[in-house]
Structure formats: structure tokens, C-alpha cells
Design a protein around this nucleic acid. Structure first.
Lengths: 230, 230
DNA sequence: CTCCTTCTCCATCATTTGTTGGAAATAATA
DNA sequence: TATTATTTCCAACAAATGATGGAGAAGGAG
């Protein structure tokens, strides 16, 4: 019964989301957009429905009319963000096809860092979902999005697209999280390093290339071989 | 005037902290311990003073008696955590002295991952401070702890211990954040990978070694040389 | 114009949350 | 022991917060 209700709720939510994505000018869509940003900035508990409503320029009850409980809106935000990310990654996969792994990573870092910096709420929401508990029963499905596996496959870390070993997923996570933290922490790091935004962004790219590429760009290197068959 | 007040507040806070650290059995210290955990789990806004008090087994007003406002307690937690981390890193520096860089990193990963897994609130608090805003005027000094520079120096990423270039700090941050996310995200990642805790911990270490060491373990490699003088 | 659906706002409620005053208990000091 | 300082709890408050019911607007269909 409870499961049924949950399923129903999910369906309603998905159709709401679809609706919002179809008409980006609608109030529903505007709420979603603002909610993404504010949930990203302040986290679930740091965000109040009134903050979102005020920013959109509507009454809170209108917000509730469109999205139901706060937890539902948050869930919609998470779903929405994952869809965006998925789309972007598919687009990226097309761009890097054919290049050797090192070059592919270079392009991927460049494209993804630019994209995420222009939508910083994506990384913040993902990160805070990874490791902040929520007092309410939002009870989200703790599950890694499927694109993790796709990346692993497209990086040749797995033979089988459907059955990707945990080790490979972890490697992908290491890469993604490195990017995420630099994007979400931009304000903090930038301020404490005392540098401008442009400089920070290019420094992020440089650092990511420096740290991440060597591990994957040496298919014949002893380091990789050793660890792979361990 | 406001600055003076802030300074005063900081002094009071530091002495409170010292007091708590001296007598770990005191109520003050117990509050701090519990506060670390709960702030780590739920973030600043997700944590209520009542949650902390209940867990300690005292009334909220006792909590306020010892630590003042919620924001002050949070600040104490951050300070406390940074002190712990600093101590641990100094200890670590002794252990790795003399080894070549690759080996040093291997040891450092092993030691730090074990330590942080046994105090997961450390990484959570640090991360959520990096990229979550807070609605109140906690107004914390946005500043990277000094041990970032120390690590950079001890990894030979900088000639001068006092003047570490931003590039080197970023590299250290990449390393630390990779570790932090795996520790703080343990519950999430473990569950979605469907593995046991022990397995997860060793997989974290393996992944970190695989991803992080190659970049630093090749002082003569073209990759490093190229990027260094860019 | 009238009916009906969709949407928006105002007013309001019950809880939760941060915070405090003051009474009691406990410990320290004389 | 008497007195004073420290610590703890109870009760309470104001503000903030999640959430709702119902009265109207807006707009299209007949």
C-alpha cells in the first residue's frame, strides 16, 4: 500500500517534470529552476519554500499547488538535474569518439568543467545528496545514476556496458567527484586562493588534467598493470 | 566595534574549546563530540540544538549555557575538527619522511583513509563548509587551513613552505577532496555498489592509489614536466 | 454571457526551532 | 556550617517554517 502510494507519487512527479521541461516559461518551470539553484546553495534543510517562492515572485501556496510537499520538489530537482547531466554526457560521448583515452579525457574535462560551472547547482545538489542526511522521510532511492556505468564503459574500464565492476565505477566516481568539488567549492577556494574567477576555472582544468590523466593515459604502464590484476 | 565584538567572541570560543579538549569527560566536551557527529550528518541547517541536546542527554538550555548560539557551537566544531586534522597530518609527516614520493603517497592514503573513516564527521563538516551557504551570519572566515600549504611543501610541490603557489594548493585540494568524498559518501556509494563496508574501504584505497599516484610518481615524465613549466 | 477548469493569492494553523529567564540542584569556598 | 559560584533543568517566548482551505482572478468552451 505504501509502496503503491510511493509509485503513484513518483508518476505524478515525473509528469510534472515533463510538463515543466516542455514549457520553460511556465510558473511550474520557473519554480523548478529557482529551486535547483537555492537547494544547491543552501541544501535541503537550509532552503525554505518561502525563499524559493519569494525569488520566483509568487506566493508559497502557488508553489505547493504545483509541486506538493517540499520533499517532492526536491526530488523533482534531483531528477531534473540527473536528466540534464545524462543528456550532456551523451552529447559528450559523441564529441570524444575515436580519440585516444588521454585526449578523450582532456576534452571531457574541458567540456564538463565549462558546463558545470555554468550550472553550479548541479554539482552542489549531487554532492549534498551523496553525504548529507535528511531529517524527513524524503527516502530517495539511494542509487548511482546509470551514466556512471556508461562513462566507465566508454573509458574502456569495463568490457560489458551492463555489468560494470565496482572497481571501475569507483574510478569514475573519483573523477567526477574531483570535478564536482572544484565546481561546488568555487567560491570558497577562489576566495581563499585570492584569484579571479577566470583564473580559477583554468586552474581547475589544469589541475584536473594533471591529476587525472596520467592514471588512465598509460595503458602499458607498470602502475596500471600492477593494480589492474591485483 | 563589531570587529572587536567578533574578536572577543573568538577568544571566548577558543578558551571554551581548550577547556573541552582538556577534560573530555565534561558535559562541554560531550556536547562538542555529539555536535561534530550531528552537524556532519545533517549539515548546519539540518541540525537542531535539540537534536544535539537529546543525544547528549541534557536539556537544550544547558547546551546554550556552555556554547552560546548554535552558530558559535558550529564554529567550535569546525575549529576542533581542523585541530584534529592538523595534529594527524603532523603525525603523518613523521611517518613518511625519507620515502620516495610514490611510497609516501601510498602510506598517506592508507593512514588518512583509515583515520577519516573512523571519524567520518570530519570530512562531512569540511565538505559542507566548502560549498553550502548558511542563511545566518555565521560569517566564518573563508580560509583554507594552513596544512594545505604544509602538505604541498612536504610533497615537494613548492620550494617555499610559506609561499605556496595556487597551482600546488589546487593539486593538494584535488587529492584531499578525492579522499573526503569517498569517506563522506561511504553510505551512499557502498549501498549503490552493493558491497560491504570492509570491501568498500579497501576499494577506496585501491582507487585512490590508482588515480592519484601516477600523477605525482613520475618526476621525469613528460606529462608532469610539460604542465609544470606552462 | 455563463459555466467550468486552471491558477494565484490571502489568511491561517500547528509545529518546529532558536533562545532566554529564573528556579532548583550541585559543587566549591570560606 | 554558611555562603557563593557553577551547573542543570523547567517553562516559556517570538519567529520561522511546512502546509492547507477557500476566495477570487484568468481564460477558454459552450
Amino acid at each position: 500500500m505504501k509502496l503503491l502510494k510511493n509509485k503513484k507519487r513518483r508518476e505524478v512527479l515525473e509528469s510534472s517534470l515533463q510538463q515543466a521541461r516542455k514549457d520553460p516559461g511556465s510558473t511550474k518551470a520557473k519554480i523548478l529552476m529557482v529551486a535547483r539553484r537555492i537547494f544547491g546553495d543552501y541544501g535541503f534543510h537550509g532552503t525554505t519554500t518561502r525563499m524559493i517562492a519569494r525569488e520566483v515572485g509568487i506566493d508559497v501556496s502557488t508553489l505547493y499547488y504545483h509541486w506538493g510537499e517540499k520533499g517532492d520538489l526536491y526530488e523533482a530537482v534531483v531528477l531534473d538535474i540527473n536528466q540534464d547531466l545524462r543528456k550532456k554526457l551523451i552529447e559528450l560521448e559523441g564529441k570524444i569518439r575515436g580519440f585516444p583515452l588521454g585526449k578523450r579525457m582532456e576534452i571531457a574535462i574541458d567540456v564538463m568543467v565549462d558546463y558545470l560551472f555554468s550550472h553550479p547547482e548541479i554539482t552542489s545538489v549531487i554532492l549534498s545528496r551523496y553525504f548529507l542526511k535528511t531529517r524527513c522521510k524524503t527516502d530517495q532511492n539511494i542509487q548511482l545514476p546509470e551514466y556512471i556505468s556508461n562513462i566507465a564503459f566508454s573509458m574502456e574500464l569495463s568490457k560489458n556496458r551492463k555489468k560494470v565492476p565496482a572497481r571501475s565505477k569507483m574510478q569514475v566516481l573519483a573523477i567526477l567527484n574531483a570535478i564536482y568539488t572544484f565546481v561546488s567549492g568555487a567560491e570558497f577556494f577562489q576566495a581563499s586562493l585570492g584569484i579571479e574567477r577566470g583564473e580559477y576555472v583554468s586552474l581547475v582544468k589544469e589541475t584536473l588534467r594533471f591529476v587525472l590523466i596520467p592514471a588512465f593515459d598509460k595503458p602499458t604502464s607498470d602502475a596500471r598493470g600492477k593494480r589492474e590484476e591485483k
